[in-house]
């Protein structure tokens, strides 16, 4: 970026510029903890189990549910930051905050306090999807275009983004006379009282019409739902960002 870019985007000088910058920092700190706290709670309680455990990351429900629930806050935050500030970073900000919260919890809670190996509780990443979502909104400046192409890309990129992290946990092992993945073996060996095997919502249901190639179908289904979820959450974000004052509540 050249110095001209800064000058163009800065109507304030002197003390007012310093004041506005101080305000920026206050808001950034506020937003950082807000989105770690709020978005992480939303994700943990809607797709948490798939994200917590390596033996929940299946090819059917994980790629369906995760993008669907993770496109929510990014859309709502973009509705404010893009519309009113032309800042194309809402999605990346939310997902980055989520990952900060997730990694802290996995390390200090699951690993240090409760002895689970970190590799059993590796989180998934949606950062590639978020970067593309921000870029599409910025280049198109259109909720419709971002809903269709951004929403679809957000979901379609999820599984391939995470496959390089988790493929190696799908290597087969023979155990107790049966074929398991390494991920399944983590669930069996590392004892957890509250999440027995039968609780896993994996590889069930009727998304098998493409034979054994379930993942692309799940991803496209998620893409369709994300194209609907994105505008819904854009308007939720817009609605919450009302500037109204009322006399009575």
């Amino acid at each position: 970026m050249t110095s001209t870019d800064l000058e163009i985007a800065q109507p304030y000088t002197g003390e007012k510029a310093r004041l506005s910058r101080a305000y920026d920092y206050l808001i950034l700190v506020l937003a950082l903890f807000l989105f770690i706290g709020a978005f992480h709670l939303h994700v943990a309680l809607t797709v948490g189990d798939w994200d917590f455990w390596v033996d929940w990351k299946d090819r059917q429900w994980w790629p369906l549910v995760t993008p669907l629930m993770m496109i929510t806050f990014p859309a709502a935050v973009q509705a404010v930051l893009w519309t009113h500030f032309r800042l194309p970073l809402g999605a990346t900000l939310c997902i980055a905050c989520l990952l900060i919260g997730t990694w802290i919890a996995r390390f200090f809670a699951y690993h240090l306090w409760n002895y689970f190996p970190i590799n059993e509780v590796l989180p998934a990443t949606m950062l590639p999807s978020a970067l593309v979502l921000d870029a599409i909104l910025m280049l198109s400046d259109s909720v419709t275009v971002t809903s269709i192409f951004g929403g679809m890309a957000f979901a379609l990129l999820f599984y391939p983004s995470n496959w390089p992290i988790f493929a190696m946990f799908h290597v087969p092992v023979e155990y107790g006379g049966a074929q398991l993945t390494v991920a399944d073996l983590f669930g069996f060996e590392y004892i957890r009282a509250g999440t027995p095997e039968y609780l896993r919502l994996i590889e069930r249901g009727t998304l098998r019409t493409y034979g054994q190639v379930a993942t692309p179908l799940s991803a496209f289904c998620s893409g369709l739902l994300c194209t609907l979820m994105y505008p819904a959450w854009w308007f939720i974000g817009k609605a919450f960002a009302t500037t109204r004052f009322v006399q009575k509540i």
């Binding site: 903890f33 706290g37 709020a38 992480h40 709670l41 943990a44 919260g101 919890a105 809670a109």
Partner: peptide
Amino acid sequence: VYWAGSYFAEQDNSW
């Protein structure tokens, strides 16, 4: 909100 919504919330599942 961070401590309540993020750290200690997810730690609930772990504990």
